[in-house]
Amino acid sequence: MSDDRRPHKFSEGQGLNEDYDEFTLDPPELKIDPTKVDPVDSHVLTDLLDERNITQDDVDVQSLIDVGLSYMQINRFEEATEAFARAAQFAEDDSLDEQEAWVNKGAAHAQLEEFDEAIGAYQEALRIDEDSEHAASAHTNLAYALWEWGHTEDALEHAERAVEVDPRFPQAWYNRGFFLSERGLYEEAVNAYDNAIRLGERNVNILEEKALALEELGREEEAEEIMERAEEMREEAEREMVEEY
């Protein structure tokens, strides 16, 4: 597997309504800029919400999820876990909103390499519904977290389940290919990588993983072509980064 870590999939959210100020990223009532919060204080958002004694009826859960997603986008993962925990707490029991909050909470923990907590969050999301719009992400993320935790057998099981729930989810196919390669099932792995690529998962990592599987199958010429493509993609990304900065 490449040294570059694959991010866990989290939801895109619905965006904050301009007229809604209860849980925006920096509402006047909270007077907090997440980019300036001391990173060692991961309970700032939680403490401020507690001080306001907010009840479930007062909370727009999707807006609170968007707060967590905003933290994710600026790599403030500890604060994100707190926001998603609150979203799960205030969401209707066993609702899609609660499930989305748990999936995102797992993704935030995974970014912190807190895989035990991530696994627990994904399992809670799947307890709510194993076939919903968020279930494929939960299965995919759980598979990767289990692999990081050393439970490789269970990882493949959830990777398989992810593509069953949503066969058009490219990251699910990518993970399935990786875990199949880990078990020496290289032909099936290549097919899974091809599905992921067709569905839009085009990056250096997946090309390198596919090339390694092809090498194991003795298809060296194909593997070499794909590795060259991966190197071109990496060089292009480096050029864009230099131009940007």
Rank of each mutant, 00 (worst) to 15 (best):
F90L: 04
A91L: 03
G106E: 04
A88T: 05
D116K: 15
N104M: 01
A135W: 12
V59Y: 00
D129C: 09
A107F: 13
A110N: 14
F90A: 01
D60F: 15
E92P: 14
A108V: 08
Q56W: 03
A88P: 10
A121T: 10
S95F: 00
D60M: 05
M72I: 06
Q123E: 09
M72T: 09
S63M: 11
S132M: 07
D60Q: 02
I128S: 02
S132I: 06
D57I: 07
I119Y: 12
D58K: 12
R127A: 09
A135T: 02
A85H: 13
A91D: 04
D57N: 06
L112P: 01
S95M: 11
Q111P: 13
L112N: 14
K105M: 13
N104L: 02
E130L: 13
A85W: 07
G68V: 03
D66C: 02
R86P: 03
D58A: 12
Q73H: 11
E82F: 14
F84I: 01
A91E: 02
A138P: 03
L69R: 10
E133V: 09
S70C: 12
N104K: 02
E79Q: 13
A121N: 11
T81W: 08
V59H: 00
D94Q: 15
A80G: 08
T81Q: 05
Q89V: 04
S95Y: 02
T81L: 09
E78S: 11
S70I: 07
D94M: 08
Q62E: 04
S132R: 05
N75F: 05
A88K: 06
T81K: 11
E114Y: 10
M72D: 11
E130D: 14
I74S: 00
R76N: 14
W102E: 06
G120I: 12
R127Y: 12
Q89E: 10
E92A: 15
A136M: 13
A135P: 05
V103F: 05
F90Q: 00
D129E: 11
D116N: 15
E79N: 14
D97I: 01
A83C: 01
D129H: 12
Q123M: 13
A107W: 04
H134F: 08
I65H: 05
H109A: 04
N104C: 07
E78G: 14
K105P: 01
Y71H: 06
S63W: 03
V103I: 03
E113R: 07
K105S: 09
V103T: 03
I128L: 04
V67C: 10
Q56P: 01
Q123R: 14
V103C: 05
L69N: 03
V103D: 01
A138L: 13
E92D: 13
E78H: 11
D60E: 10
A118W: 15
A83D: 00
E130A: 12
S95P: 10
Y71I: 08
Q56I: 04
K105L: 04
A125R: 06
L96K: 12
A91H: 04
S63D: 06
Y122M: 11
D129W: 06
S63N: 15
R127V: 15
F84L: 09
A136F: 08
A87L: 05
